[in-house]
Amino acid sequence: MDKPVKEETVLNGRYKVLNVIGTGSYGIVYLCEELNTNENRVIKQLRPSKRRSKKEVEMFEKEIAVLRMLNHPNIPRLFEAFSNNGDLFYVMSFIEGDNLEDQIFFKKKTFNEKESLLFLVHLLELVDYLHKRDIYHQDLRIPNIILKNEDPFLIDFGLTNQGLSMDSYHSTSPSSSDKQRSILEMKQQDYYDLGEILLYLLYTTYSSESKKALPWTEELSLEKGTVYLLKRLLGITEPYSNTSEISADLHAALLK
C-alpha cells in the first residue's frame, strides 16, 4: 500500500497538504493550500510504488506535457511540476464543485432530453478544443467531469494520447495510414464516451416499471434526432469521423 503524504506536510516549500481528495491506480491527489497566496491548489503525486516502472513514469510525464499545452477556462491549469525525495508531483488549479457522478447518484440531479443535449454541446466544445490540438482524452467518464455553476469542467488527463507524438509510444514507427487509422480510433473512442455520458444523463429521468432490463432504444422515449445521434456516437450505425458532424446532428436534434 502506498501511504499518502500526511496532512500539514509542506511540499516544495509552499504547498501545505490539507487532505487526500482522490486515489487512482497510479496517482494520489491532494487538496493543498499555497502558502504564498492562501489559494487552494490540487497536487497529483505518482504513487511511490510506480516510480520503478519506466512506463508509469512516462505516463505521468506525458500527462504533465499535455496539461502544459492546454489553456482553457474549463480545464485545470498546470502551475508546476517537481520532485521530492524521488517522488514526482505536479500542481494544478483547484476547481470547486462536485463531479457529475456524485451529482447524479448522490444529489439526484436530473436532466431532461433537451438539458442532456445542451450539456453535450458544452462537452463537445471541450472535446473539439482537444482534438484540434491533436489531443485525445480517452477517459471521458462522469467522474472526470466537474460541475461548477452548472458548467462542465474536464479533469484527469492520465490516459490522454497525442496523435503527433505517437511515434514515441511505438517500438517501430507506424506508417502514415496506420497512424491516421489510430488517430481516427482515438477520436471515435472519445465520441463513444460522449454517447455513454449522454445516456447517463437521459436515464436520470427514467423510472422503470419493468423488472426486465431492456436496451436503451426500448426503455427511453426519445426524439428521432437524439436516437440518430446516440446510435452514431456509440457506433451502432456509421460512426462519426469529426466533431463538426456531431455538432451538426446535435444542433439538429435540439431544434426538434
Score class of each variant (00 low, 15 high):
Lys3Met: 06
Val5Asn: 10
Lys6Tyr: 10
Glu7Tyr: 10
Glu7Gln: 11
Glu7Thr: 15
Glu7His: 07
Glu8Phe: 11
Glu8Tyr: 13
Asn12Cys: 07
Lys16Phe: 04
Leu18Met: 08
Gly22Pro: 08
Gly24Asp: 10
Gly24Val: 12
Ser25Phe: 14
Gly27Arg: 00
Ile28Tyr: 02
Tyr30Ala: 04
Asn36Thr: 12
Asn38Leu: 07
Arg51Ser: 07
Lys54Ala: 06
Met59Tyr: 11
Phe60Tyr: 05
Glu61Asp: 09
Glu61Met: 07
Glu61Phe: 09
Lys62Asp: 05
Ile64Pro: 00
Ile64Phe: 01
Arg68Tyr: 14
Met69Thr: 12
His72Phe: 09
Pro76Asp: 10
Pro76Tyr: 13
Phe79Pro: 00
Glu80Tyr: 07
Ala81Thr: 10
Asn85Val: 03
Leu88Cys: 01
Leu88Asn: 01
Met92Arg: 14
Phe94Gly: 01
Phe105Val: 12
Phe105Asp: 09
Lys107Asp: 13
Lys108Tyr: 15
Lys109Trp: 11
Lys109Gly: 05
Lys109His: 10
Phe111Ala: 03
His122Pro: 01
Leu123Ser: 04
Val127Leu: 07
Leu130Lys: 08
His131Met: 06
Lys132Glu: 13
Leu140Ile: 03
Arg141Pro: 03
Asn144Ile: 03
Pro152Thr: 07
Pro152Val: 05
Phe157Ala: 00
Gly158Arg: 00
Thr160Tyr: 11
Leu164Ser: 14
Asp167Met: 04
Ser168Trp: 12
Thr172Ala: 02
Pro174Val: 09
Ser177Glu: 14
Ser177Lys: 14
Arg181His: 14
Leu184Pro: 07
Gln189His: 15
Asp190Ser: 08
Glu196His: 11
Ile197Leu: 04
Leu198Gln: 05
Leu198Glu: 01
Leu198Asn: 08
Leu202Asn: 12
Thr204Gln: 02
Thr205Glu: 13
Thr205Ile: 14
Tyr206Asn: 08
Tyr206Glu: 09
Ser208Asn: 07
Glu223Arg: 15
Thr226Arg: 08
Val227Ser: 04
Tyr228Val: 05
Arg232Ser: 08
Thr237Lys: 13
Glu238Cys: 04
Pro239Ala: 04
Thr243Leu: 02
Ser244Val: 13
Asp249Ser: 06
Ala252Phe: 15
Ala253Arg: 00
Lys256Thr: 12
